[in-house]
Write a protein that binds this DNA or RNA. Structure first.
Length: 283
DNA sequence: CCCCTCTCCTGATCGC
DNA sequence: TGCGATCAGGAGAGGG
């Protein structure tokens, strides 16, 4: 379940090891991994062969490799279970794309649930930043130096929809997934079912502050992993799951007040919250 | 326009 | 032992 911190860990690994390298071989093993590249797998491999990776970038849960100097990028989304691995792949069951770099390093895209994928795209200017076309609609994330929290609060003030739903909407604020949404709401003491427009500016600011804080801390721990589906470029998991306060802690005690953490269905996924720190809205 | 539900996918796990 | 049901969830299509 890679969210912003996990994707950033992967991006840093790629930056350190693939920047400046050229792709000398590439093979697509599963068509779903390139389904978002509308020109097809043959076009993608033909254009990547011989391409030089000049750097990496990320917004929210999207990361991309900048190629050559022609303003194109290889956009990577990890989906739920995507992995960008450097070096030999031992278990090839879920190997979707295999590439080789000019120093002999293997770069592989492994993805059990096939929600992720690669695509080539042009870079465009959006609000003063260069991003690939498929990322143009994605809002800045809370760790972006140009993240405008006041502007996001203004957007949220107009949303007649639950705050958790908005946190998960990548066009409002990006990078937050189910785990960090629950953690941020717990830290801010806000129930995810509260209507965004009915929260005060101060409360909305606290929720966004908490989201930035929890993701920054998770990044410092190398990310979160529950089932080893999320790993860095060397196949290793992070440690932040030990620091989670609500997610996955059903029936355990709240670390702040001792109440029993509850689990509920929300948007077809699980939501965890403290009944005392995060009282339900009146309806 | 705004909001929300559904769907894609695979593997682990559980109850019978 | 087998088998169906359930769960995990990012993001976009499409419905209301």
């Amino acid at each position: 379940m890679p969210e912003l911190p996990e994707v950033e860990v992967v991006r840093r690994g790629l930056q350190a090891h693939v920047a400046g390298k050229t792709i000398t071989a590439i093979r697509v093993d599963h068509p779903r991994a390139v389904r978002r590249h509308e020109a097809g797998a043959a076009d993608l491999t033909a254009r990547l062969l011989g391409a030089r990776i000049i750097g990496t970038d990320r917004r929210g849960k999207y990361l991309w490799l900048n190629l050559g100097d022609d303003g194109t990028a290889l956009v990577v989304h990890l989906g739920m279970s995507g992995q960008m691995l450097l070096g030999p792949v031992t278990n090839t069951n879920h190997l979707r794309i295999a590439a080789v770099l000019d120093d002999g390093t293997a770069l592989s895209f492994v993805d059990q649930r096939t929600f992720g994928g690669w695509q080539l795209a042009d870079l465009v200017d959006v609000d003063g930043s260069r991003v690939p076309v498929p990322v143009a609609h994605i809002a800045r994330d809370p760790l972006d130096p140009r993240f405008d929290q006041a502007a996001v609060v203004n957007v949220l003030r107009r949303k007649h929809s639950e705050i958790k739903r908005q946190l998960l909407d990548q066009t409002v604020v990006s990078g937050v997934g189910n785990i960090y949404a629950d953690e941020a709401l717990w830290r801010a003491g806000v129930n995810g079912a509260r209507i965004a427009a009915k929260l005060t500016r101060r409360q909305l600011g606290e929720v966004l502050d908490a989201a930035a804080e929890v993701m920054r801390e998770a990044l410092g721990q190398g990310g979160t992993s529950f089932d080893s589906l999320y790993v860095n470029v060397n196949g290793q998991s992070g440690y932040f799951d030990r620091s989670l306060n609500v997610y996955g802690r059903e029936d355990r005690n709240c670390r702040r007040c001792g109440a029993v953490i509850r689990r509920e269905k929300f948007m077809n996924r699980s939501s965890f919250s403290c009944p005392k720190c995060q009282p339900r809205p009146r309806r």
